[in-house]
Design a protein around this nucleic acid. Structure first.
Length: 788
RNA sequence: GCCCCGGUGGUGAAAUUGGUAGACACGCAGGACUUAAAAUCCUGUUGGCAGCAAUGUCAGUAACGGUUCAACUCCGUUCCGGGGCACCA
């Protein structure tokens, strides 16, 4: 493809599009130094109204840890080491030639260090590897290069590593410590090197067991030899000057000692890395940078803004550069060559809300007066998927602008509401891919032009039965057999031994456009026309009943998954009010769920029922609908319905609990219908409540009632509690925690009176069976529980 | 693998945040109106058992265990689903 790919564009080590090989390559990039704001981003969380989960995610992402860096001298000579102490520590604190610097949060475990592990990319690896281990290390590095960071961390069960042959010296007791490299240590975090303490860290433990590295126990009985124990509450043993100390306390003692000896220093570390800020793409703000003799020189302010040049085509530039790399005319300036990367999406999304405050200003992005007036965004609605991207970037960006004095607030969003995602229900088809290397027969030649798709149930059945394993060459014969029985085009006899031995198989799970699928059944003819006939020659291995079924998964809607749905059709059929209310009725805003239109009828019926409070369903002989609303004085019971609704809607709206608010509207309309209430006084108030939920119909009916102006300008109804007071309340009564009966009591009943009433009630005493009442629990306004 | 969130009827969900589990809807079943359809209305709808019935009774909020007078709600373990893991934004 000749372009840079994102992690999510790489699947199984090849590009998601086209299945091309992917190569890892070092490239010079622009970065935003978000790490400089790490601490303030952490502290700022206390000043904003975000969910605890959101704050937790950002905290973990920033990943502040306190510990120390310390150095280990390395002896990579072949001669025996470890006799006598090395005079490290006398030297100044500096990273000399082949000292390994590790970062640790647990310096108290220094005497339990049984090996060091370097990231395979660590600069020292080449220097310290011994002659004997050179080949093994080289082989291991080749392996690691083929692995993504994700794979390296995810597949921890598969323990890999390689001994460098070198030994480091424990600065406190002179003990030689073998130095390994392993993929679970990442170059980008800390110093890219760790000290491994198997008795205290499970990953280190597994590594030591796997490679038979002897384990030193420094925590006595806290370590059982079966698994590591990451406690900080053990008393240290085998630990020289730390013996007898509680681990928690020993951390500070160890750091002091390390600093005293000059072999390390206290260090706060952040897991967060600087944010990559350049993209090898066309669509993005171009960097106002010209390279002069290898130095990046910014354009003068007069030359801003630098706009994207017109592009004839968008193909990647040379050497992984973006499309701008092809535009020689634009690139060349008298001073030098322009930067060819563009900025990422978040260059704009981090601060667009400020521009909204002053959109027509030609002098500055937003006048200070405007931002002072509007201030922070009061409520920001966004999903948790932005937790460690956009929502962190814009927080940082705001702090930068604040520091520069351009705005007067440090946090962009006062309150954050995490709406859930309406997910897509994706459909997949299984493509059986096979390749024949040699001696292709005629049939095979033909078949390579086809794509064979296998229906989901059939696929699962064959996999379960182990009829063939697509990735295993030994199973090729079985596959041929299976295919031959399934596809008329295949004839088992046409395959020679040689074909079978030289063929490889795999299945690919391809996302297919949900528009081409009816339920789970693929419309195969439509599918053949999809993507301009890319699958025009597809062969389908169907179910016995002739259907071709798709696999499915609920996931985020995305164009690349072809699982997006278009609401226009529903909007046309039911109108925007129904659509809007249905989305609200679907469930809590913060909850994610797959898009499903099953219940939309209910909301539509509700709006029609609302309409019938105003208009008769019968038309006059002249064809007009007859208004049924009136100017009658409402009854107290009708006022009660209204004010109950006012209370509920007020609460629910404030809590973003839209689904229950819609339910309350339904209850209200049902009750008003039952009460035959068509009073303008009640209905007009109800419409005001409804107007944010179903604005069109509310405005329409408002006008129909003959009310003045727009409903948007109408005063919000005020709650009058007097209509809601109840004289009595039915208390549920449970005996020993089990619901048994109920009793009606006055609202202002005292516990004593309640007890008396309850214990003299026949329905209740029959459950007591004359047993002694041990405890009488009375929760006012709630319930009664009697314990016997 | 790691971090965060979630799991309640056939379905979407509700439960005043520890106090009557299933509000409100969808769907389904039966009925009314209609020549018929649409629309509308009525009744039923967590499961088991008993009963002609009203009803009674036991169980039940992913699974198991714990705390409590009382657990969908709090704690622990496990399983499953979703989001994120640094170039989708």
């Amino acid at each position: 493809l000749g372009t840079v790919l994102a992690n999510d564009e790489v699947v199984n080590g090849v590009s998601e599009r086209g299945g091309h090989p992917v190569e890892k390559k070092k490239m010079r990039q622009w970065y935003l130094r978000i790490t400089a704001y790490a601490d303030r981003l952490l502290q700022g969380l206390d000043t904003v109204d975000f969910s605890d989960a959101m704050k937790e995610m950002q905290k973990n992402w920033i990943g502040k840890s306190e510990g120390c860096e310390m150095q280990f001298a390395v002896d990579s000579g072949q001669e025996a080491v470890g006799n006598g102490k090395l005079a490290v520590g006398s030297g100044q604190w500096a990273v000399s030639g082949s000292n390994i610097v590790v970062y640790t949060t647990r310096p108290d475990t220094i005497f339990g260090v049984d090996f060091l592990v370097l990231a395979p990319e660590h600069a020292l690896v080449a220097n310290i590897t011994t002659e004997a281990q050179k080949q093994a290390v080289a082989d291991y590095l080749t392996y690691v290069k083929s692995r993504s960071d994700r794979e390296r961390q995810a597949e921890v069960k598969q323990i890999t590593g390689c001994f460098t042959g070198a030994y480091a010296i424990n600065p406190f007791n002179g003990k030689p410590i073998p130095v390994w490299i392993a993929e679970y240590v990442l170059a980008g975090y800390g110093t890219g090197a760790i000290m491994a303490v198997p008795c205290g860290d499970q990953r280190d433990f597994a590594f030591a067991k796997h490679f038979n590295i002897p384990i030193t126990n420094i925590i006595g009985a806290h370590y059982n030899g079966e698994e590591a124990n990451p406690t900080k509450d053990a008393i240290l043993e085998n630990s020289d000057f730390l013996n007898g100390k509680l681990m928690k306390d020993a951390i500070a003692i160890a750091i002091n000692k390390i600093e005293e000896l000059g072999i390390g220093k206290r260090k706060v570390n952040y897991r967060m890395r600087d944010a990559g800020f350049s993209r090898q793409r066309y669509w993005g703000e171009p960097f106002p940078i010209v390279w002069c003799d290898g130095i990046a020189v910014p354009l003068s302010e007069n030359d801003l803004p630098l706009e994207l040049p017109y592009a004839e085509k968008y193909s990647p530039g040379p050497n992984g550069e973006g499309p701008l790399g092809n535009m020689e005319q634009w690139l060349q300036t008298p001073e030098g060559r322009r930067e060819t990367s563009t900025m990422p999406g978040y260059a704009g999304s981090s601060w667009y809300f400020l521009r909204y405050m002053d959109p027509n200003n030609t002098e500055t992005f937003c006048d200070r007066k405007a931002s002072d007036y509007w201030g922070q965004v009061d409520v920001y609605v966004g999903g948790t998927e932005h937790a460690v991207g956009h929502l962190l970037y814009s927080r940082m960006w705001t702090k930068v602008l604040y520091d520069l004095g351009y705005i007067g607030f440090e946090e962009p969003f006062k309150k954050l509401v995490n709406q859930g995602m309406i997910q897509g229900s994706s459909r997949f088809v299984y493509l059986v891919k096979y390749s024949f290397n040699q001696s292709r027969t005629k049939i095979i030649d033909t078949l390579t032009e086809y794509q064979v798709f296998i229906s989901n149930d059939k696929y699962n059945k064959l996999v379960a039965e182990d009829s063939f394993t697509f990735t295993d060459k030994d199973e090729s014969a079985k596959l041929v057999k299976a295919l031959a029985s399934l596809i008329p085009e295949f004839k088992e006899d046409d395959f020679t031994e040689d074909d079978i031995n030289n063929s490889g198989y795999a299945t690919y799970r391809l996302p297919v456009d949900v528009q081409l699928v009816d339920g789970f059944e693929l419309q195969t003819e439509e599918f053949k026309k999809w993507k301009n006939g890319a699958y025009a020659n597809a062969i389908f291995i169907r179910e016995e009943d002739g259907r071709f079924l798709c696999d499915w998964e609920v996931e985020k809607m995305s164009k690349s998954k072809y699982n997006t749905v278009n609401p226009d059709e529903l909007c046309d059929k039911y109108g925007a009010d129904t659509f809007r209310m249905y989305e609200m009725f679907l469930g809590p805003v913060e909850q994610s769920k797959p898009w499903d239109t099953k219940g939309i009828e209910g909301v539509h019926r509700f709006l029609k029922k609302l309409w019938r409070l105003f208009y008769s369903t019968h038309t006059t002989p002249g064809g007009e609908t007859k208004a049924v609303w009136n100017n009658e004085k409402p009854t107290d019971a009708q006022y009660k319905i209204l004010h109950k609704t006012i209370k509920k809607i007020e609460q629910d709206t404030a809590n973003f609990s839209y689904n229950t608010a819609v339910a309350a509207f339904m209850i209200s309309v049902n009750e008003l219908t039952d009460a035959k209430c068509h009073s303008k006084e009640i209905l007009s108030q109800l419409l005001i409540l409804l107007s944010p939920y179903a604005p069109h119909i509310a405005e329409e009916l408002w006008a129909a009632l003959g009310c003045e102006g727009s409903i948007l300008d109408a005063a919000y109804p005020t709650l009058e509690e007097k209509y809601l007071v109840e004289a009595s309340k039915e208390y549920p009564v449970s005996i020993n925690g089990k619901m048994r009966s109920s009793i009606t009591l006055a609202t202002e009943v005292t516990e004593e009176d309640a007890k008396q009433a309850a214990l003299s009630n026949e329905n209740i005493t029959k459950w007591l069976e004359g047993k002694e009442v041990k405890k009488f629990i009375f929760v006012k306004g709630r319930m009664i529980n009697i314990v016997v």
